[in-house]
């Protein structure tokens, strides 16, 4: 059975511009390991060239149970980034997208 999760968030970057992060993941076959595609857009335009680091925390165990941050690599499409996540165990995860480069911000997607 293939797992699919889709995460969307509108988060402000600054008063005049908003960064939108959309993330879609599917299982690679091994338990709880997902290949994810993150799409970043700001004011309707894709955000290219950002340095994106993805990590995740279990909300009920903040700072104690998390996954090691993974650097995303640019994808094929505009504003796309690819990352593989190993979530270690089932449960609720807050996924953090930390952006550096032309855009500096942190977005949190709740799953």
């Amino acid at each position: 059975m293939r797992w699919l999760l889709s995460l969307c968030l509108l988060a402000p970057l600054a008063a005049s511009a908003q960064t939108r992060a959309d993330m879609q993941c599917k299982a690679v076959g091994k338990d709880l390991i997902y290949d994810c595609v993150v799409r970043l857009a700001r004011a309707g335009e894709p955000v290219n060239g950002a340095q994106l680091t993805v990590s995740a925390d279990m909300p009920s165990m903040p700072m104690a149970h998390n996954i090691k941050p993974v650097k995303a690599r640019p994808g094929k499409g505009p504003g796309e980034y690819l990352v593989r996540l190993d979530l270690e165990m089932q449960g609720e995860w807050a996924i953090k997208l930390r952006l550096a480069g032309p855009v500096r911000d942190q977005l949190v997607l709740h799953y």
Binding site: D57, P59, S60, P62, A64, E92, A94, K96, Q106, V108
Partner: peptide, 17 residues
């Protein structure tokens, strides 16, 4: 913690912590 995380929720502050 709130500034570091940029996002907080009630479950962050349950018995486990």
């Amino acid at each position: 913690f709130a500034y570091h995380n940029s996002y907080i929720e009630p479950r962050n502050f349950d018995m486990m912590l």
